[in-house]
């Protein structure tokens, strides 16, 4: 049971929820208010949606032994471009204009993903460095788009992406669910998952087996850009507006944490989209829990650091090895002395 790779992350998530339940018995209560689902659990899902999206994109990138540091900047760019276009419309509530704004933003994000993919797969630059370029420059580009201002918008259709409801359920949850469902189907029903794992698990073996690893690599960075773009729109819709300085700040780090917690290794190969979703929810639940427990929210980062450390440690084979050895000590001191004598 503990062997299953989602055992530890799921246990940690359940443990946190249990803490919440004890601290606040009404925590699990979900009710319908004004035709909307309402409750702490719904909040966790709703607020965690952007991280889930970015995490899904990042997971596929990491599966190929890559990493995409630029997603935070892409989130900012996506929101900035959409809001810039919306703010210039005579009627922000026009659906047509909103669709154009969304289309423009996502189109640009696909291009940015393609840029990352080009650097990694064609120029052969190490992913961490290749995406560092856009991470640094992208934040500047986002500020360039917004001219350093916070662009506020009023568009109803656009805001629905972040705070709207459909069939009682928040739209952002539905979007995250749809992206998760579609990408899971895509990787497991086609051969994409297997081929990505082969590319990341052993690139040279993949090449000699006839994999077009360059093309696959390119594909995942483009997909990662798209996911970040959708997340960026969601964050902007929630704000509502574009804040080029803060939108998506540190989301790349949270996304990498989420997938690490979910059991995907940064060294590539085997990946688990479900694990990433669990990881993202764990991170979001943590924030909510800190709030529920009445711990000052300035301590959120501290608690996050400690919980993440704990989850990473129990998943580390080296750590478990050490703990086990401590319980069953071997007479190591004698042999160590013997070495010193002979030396």
């Amino acid at each position: 049971m503990t062997k299953h790779r989602l055992f530890w992350p799921v246990s940690a998530l359940l443990a946190l929820l249990l803490v919440d339940l004890i601290a606040k018995p009404s925590f699990f209560k979900v009710e319908v208010r004004d035709g909307h689902l309402y409750g702490s659990l719904i909040d966790i899902l709703r607020l965690g949606a952007p991280l889930i999206l970015v995490g899904i994109g990042m997971t596929l990138v990491v599966a190929t032994r890559g990493i995409d540091l630029s997603v935070g900047s892409v989130v900012a760019i996506s929101g900035a471009l959409a809001c810039l276009h919306l703010s210039g419309l005579p009627d922000q509530d026009a659906v047509g204009g909103t669709v154009v704004a969304v289309g423009m933003a996502l189109g640009l994000c696909l291009a940015l993903g393609a840029w990352n993919g080009f650097l990694v797969s064609v120029l052969g630059i190490q992913p961490i460095i290749a995406t560092l370029i856009l991470m640094v420059a992208g934040r500047g580009i986002a500020q360039l788009i917004t001219d350093g201002q916070i662009i506020t918008i009023t568009s109803g259709p656009f805001r629905a992406l972040g705070s709207g409801y459909l069939f009682l359920v928040p739209v952002s949850i539905l979007i995250a669910l749809a992206v998760f469902g579609l990408s899971s189907l895509l990787v497991r029903k086609s051969a994409l998952g297997l081929l990505l794992e082969a590319v990341g698990g052993n690139p040279e073996a993949g090449r000699l087996s006839g994999l077009r690893s360059g093309r696959l690599t390119w594909l995942v960075y483009v997909f990662g850009g798209l996911c970040a773009g959708i997340a960026g729109l969601m964050i902007a819709a929630n704000t509502p507006g574009a804040d080029a300085n803060h939108a998506g700040l540190w989301i790349e780090l949270d996304a990498i944490l989420a997938l690490t917690i979910g059991g995907t290794k940064l060294t590539g190969g085997r990946f688990s989209l479900g694990g990433t979703v669990i990881g993202a929810l764990l991170i979001q639940t943590l924030t909510t829990t800190v709030y529920t427990l009445g711990i000052p929210d300035t301590a959120t980062l501290l608690v996050k650091a400690l919980v993440v450390l704990l989850v990473c440690l129990v998943q580390s084979p080296a750590f478990r090895d050490r703990v086990r050895r401590r319980r069953r000590p071997v007479p190591a001191t004698e042999s160590a002395r013997a070495v010193e004598v002979s030396a």
Partner: peptide
């Protein structure tokens, strides 16, 4: 953490990033 527990530098120092910044905010806002 990195050497003895084989946690990747990226993750271990990311934990450090959160931890130190968290300490900052706990000490003073």
């Amino acid at each position: 953490l990195i050497h003895y527990f084989e946690i990747q530098p990226f993750i271990a120092t990311l934990v450090g990033l959160f931890f130190a910044r968290g300490l900052c905010l706990t000490i003073s806002t």
